[in-house]
């Protein structure tokens, strides 16, 4: 437990720091660890690009000699990826923006409009962020079935919205609460409605937080498995994680294609993360963790 985190800013300290053996050891440890951490991902990428003969013949961490793109097209065909990919895209593209909008509206009202039961309402929302939905798969199924929405897009999107709202309201409420009064008061005195103030002032300044929440929500919607498993029974309505699970069950010995299937499932989330990641830590800091 000797790892430490401080650095001095003065010139002398700067020189001392460069030769600090502690930092050199720390760096080496972090690099070795990072290599270990990234190893499974490298392994997936390499295996996905090897033919089955090459997988058996070569070391797992040898880069592929001839790139076997056919694994991807093969897995795409056999795993019915065209359908599952399309379903995942439709569900995510509708759910994520809609959920963020609902959450932002509610968070604004709870943070900036004085309500008699405001505090209680906030607590009511907060509560949901703490409750694992995995506990309630059966009653969610019963409810959605009661609406006749099993195997439909709304049938998954509505529960997804419900379980996304609490955490987002929690983060955005913290952010909106911290916005100085002067910013909105003048507009309100001039007769602007809360809807206008929300749209014209609060939405624009909360873009970094919304971007951070967008990543989180995109990733968790794209990756969601348990609820989809219960609510989507028809193969043609399956999302990517369900397709991958079934692919593993059927073709688990075709390692090249299996790893190509994993790569295709994971890839879109990685791309979205890379596009928005510069907002990620800054967005989170401004809302949640500042305390």
């Amino acid at each position: 437990m000797t790892v430490m985190t401080t650095h001095l800013e003065s010139e002398t300290a700067e020189i001392k720091r460069r030769r600090d053996p502690f930092l050199i050891i720390l760096w080496l440890v972090l690099v070795v660890f990072a290599l270990l951490w990234v190893a499974p991902i490298v392994l997936i990428a390499f295996t996905a690009l090897k033919s089955n003969a090459e997988i058996m013949a070569t070391n797992a961490f040898t880069p592929p000699e001839t790139v076997a793109w056919s694994n991807f097209s093969g897995a795409w065909e056999r795993g019915n990826f065209a359908t599952t990919f399309q379903n995942s895209v439709i569900i995510t593209v509708i759910k994520v923006p809609l959920g963020l909008m609902f959450s932002a509206m509610a968070a604004y009202a709870l943070a900036r409009i004085k309500l008699r039961f405001g505090k209680l309402l906030l607590l009511f929302f907060l509560f949901g962020a703490m409750i694992p939905f995995q506990v309630m798969l059966a009653p969610i199924f019963t409810l959605v079935n009661g609406f006749g929405l099993i195997d439909t897009y709304p049938g998954v999107i509505l529960p997804y919205l419900a379980f996304g709202v609490p955490y987002q309201v929690f983060i955005l409420h913290g952010f909106f609460k911290a916005v100085p009064k002067e910013l909105s008061e003048a507009a309100l005195i001039d007769g602007a409605s809360h809807l206008t103030v929300f749209r014209r002032i609060f939405l624009p300044i909360s873009l970094p937080v919304l971007a951070a929440l967008l990543i989180l929500d995109f990733v968790s919607t794209w990756n969601e498995f348990a609820m989809a498993l219960v609510l989507l029974q028809d193969r043609n309505m399956w999302t990517l994680p369900l397709g991958l699970m079934s692919f593993q069950g059927q073709f688990s010995t075709d390692y090249g294609q299996l790893n190509a299937a994993i790569a295709m499932t994971v890839f879109p989330a990685v791309v979205v993360y890379m596009i928005f990641q510069r907002y990620f830590v800054s967005g989170l800091t401004s809302g949640a963790v500042k305390g």
């Binding site: 929302f125 419900a162 609490p166």
Partner: peptide
């Protein structure tokens, strides 16, 4: 109006199942 949509979907699909 602002809280309504979030509240409705949350109460129906998260709180009711509980």
């Amino acid at each position: 109006m602002l809280i309504g949509p979030a509240f409705a979907v949350y109460a129906t699909f998260a709180i009711w199942p509980m």
